[in-house]
Design a protein around this nucleic acid. Structure first.
Lengths: 350, 350
DNA sequence: TCTGAACGTGAGAGCGCTCTCACGGCGAAC
DNA sequence: GTTCGCCGTGAGAGCGCTCTCACGTTCAGA
């Protein structure tokens, strides 16, 4: 072998060297780097030139050590793979979060614990002060994490209204209103036997969407018929089973509001197999407005949530709560929008 | 307001305190924490008790400062939102990476630059030594990032075989072989006019899959008919346009191999609209085996890649290249599997 | 002319950790 | 009994940064 000798990696400059080159003290360079106003314009220029020349970049670890800030926040996604992989919700949300963090020059540390052991490690990591704050995505009702973090005073923002008492910052879409809109839309087109396939009963989003369904029926003076309510779990398999059950128990239904597009797409398949035409015999509306909504046959009406915006709002909230610890918890609820497509087009057959 | 007085957050213990409690020196505690063998069993026990009692967790910043390691690696995803959001590939890959990193007690810092400005920041960040290594996901052929990182000697693993000269560690699925399998499968069932909708011409995965298509035709002694090759871009819109073009130019085609499931699902729609039955008139095979493959009508045959495993392998590779800088670049190519479903079932009509 | 506030700058401590080196004690080898 | 080497431990320096405090200069006000 020839002398390949990998040259000694990255010879990064330090504050000291910049100071020496610029002919000032370390403190002054630090002030320039951190944008302090107490530096005269010409000194600032000199220092900036030196920084450019050396390609100086502050050492994050050293800074963290003294400021006690890591300038990084954790995004924790606790969600079974099934949903995580099929639902574009997560990439979109993460993208929104990432964009907002990048503007603030914060780092995104991603945690996806996937067993109990991992979860333990996660808790330890989060409470050890390695991050300045935590964004918690998609916890189910009984997740102990928010409680644990809150008592340890780790700044925290949660996605979705928490079920129980924990008083914590959160961002949510208005699931109840979204479901109400979807259901009202079906009623408006003349459907009277509107069924629903719900989300899991341990997730607030699922419960809220069911509540919205009931609201809409109430608004229209229709009675809620429990036989028209089938419990799903947001997945295709769950949607399929629920739709089959509905069709068997209540063959006279003329519309279905599904609490997720995945379930709705499965419902379309079941309806098709059963010889029901959509939307003529049975109208269908989904939830999430995921890409799948445009690929089904017929295309799927759905409720769209402002996902990226939710990510951004979570970051805003978290930044605030890092700044002023112990402030009163805030909640942000964003409105949704019904996207009407073929699966609920036209008027119901009388 | 009552005296809500948010108590002074996390009173984390330091090495010094542990040392004092255990009655030993800081150095000894450090040795215990880092699993050095040069500590007598009873001293080790004493120290461990003290650590437990105080709930001591090492300060990562302080450690980084001296070791010059951050124990974190960056995952950079440069991909237009369209694909990022519709393709479950990314969540799955990230999950695989995350799991492998967590085992090694490494942190995952996620970067999703989405404009030129952001990209600049990203490069600066990565070369500033804030991370020990970089995993680069889904770069197009002309991405300058690998080159930049390589010259700065930042340990790097890339997803997918790079187009050009950059000699760099990478992990890839055997796209060529996967495409060959898919195409051969169509030929085996009796199809003779097998078209293909390719990926974008600036992505190696697209080119490789096209090459595999050609391979299969060659294997079967069939001639490659350029008129049966339509360029797509992995997205539904692209697939739709390509399928329409194919149908117009070569109405006699009897099968289509699509380089992505998204394009395949769009192709199904176009074929349906054109009154072609799948698989009877035209058989279709997609690529990726994404969840969408089971929701189309008919369900979609597809090529599955071991995505999580690819993530794991990338981490292994990166860990190695961090350990021994400047070693010879390695490449890992994983095999794929054809999942046959309804869209290519049965035999071709003669 | 003197006082003192305002401002820009430098000196120096110290954040929590690792790691080198020195040292004392003990057993093996002569 | 002496020497040597090894092993477990402690002392202390120093990683690169921020931040407090003190200091010198300038300038307005009396």
């Amino acid at each position: 072998m020839a002398q390949v000798e990998p040259s000694p990696a990255k010879p990064v400059a330090t504050l000291d060297e910049v100071a020496r080159i610029a002919g000032v003290s370390r403190a002054t360079v630090s002030r320039v780097v951190n944008g302090s106003p107490k530096v005269s314009p010409d000194v600032r220029r000199t220092v900036e030139r030196a920084i450019d020349r050396l390609g100086y970049v502050p050492n994050r670890a050293a800074r963290s050590l003294v400021t006690r800030r890591s300038d990084s926040i954790a995004v924790v996604i606790t969600e079974p793979s099934s949903r995580l992989f099929s639902d574009p919700f997560f990439p979109r949300l993460v993208r929104g979060i990432s964009a907002a963090l990048s503007v603030r020059d914060l780092q995104l540390v991603l945690l996806m614990p996937h067993d109990g052991d991992d979860e333990q490690r996660t808790v330890r990591y989060l409470t050890a002060g390695h991050v300045d704050g935590v964004i918690l995505v998609s916890l189910h009702g009984d997740d102990p994490l928010p409680q644990q973090l809150t008592t340890r005073r780790v700044p925290l923002v949660v996605l979705g209204r928490p079920t129980r008492g924990v008083d914590v910052d959160f961002v949510d879409a208005d699931n109840r209103d979204g479901a109400r809109r979807a259901t009202s839309h079906l009623i408006d087109r003349g459907n009277r036997r509107v069924a629903t396939i719900t989300g899991p009963r341990d997730m607030v989003a699922g419960l809220d969407r069911l509540a919205g369904y009931r609201d809409a029926l109430g608004d229209a003076g229709l009675e809620v018929d429990e036989g028209l309510i089938a419990t799903g779990d947001f997945t295709q398999a769950g949607g399929e089973a629920a739709m089959e059950r509905l069709l068997r128990d209540r063959p006279d239904l003329d519309a279905v509001f599904c609490a997720s597009d995945l379930m709705a797409s499965a419902a379309l398949g079941v309806l098709h197999a059963a010889g029901r035409r959509v939307p003529d015999d049975v109208a269908v509306v989904g939830y999430d407005d995921s890409p799948i909504a445009t690929t089904t046959r017929p295309t799927l009406s759905s409720v769209r949530q402002p996902i990226e915006e939710m990510g951004r709002e979570m970051v805003h909230l978290l930044a605030g709560s890092i700044e002023q610890a112990g402030r009163v918890p805030r909640r942000i609820v964003l409105t949704t929008e019904l996207i009407a497509r073929a699966s609920s087009a036209g008027r119901a057959m009388p």
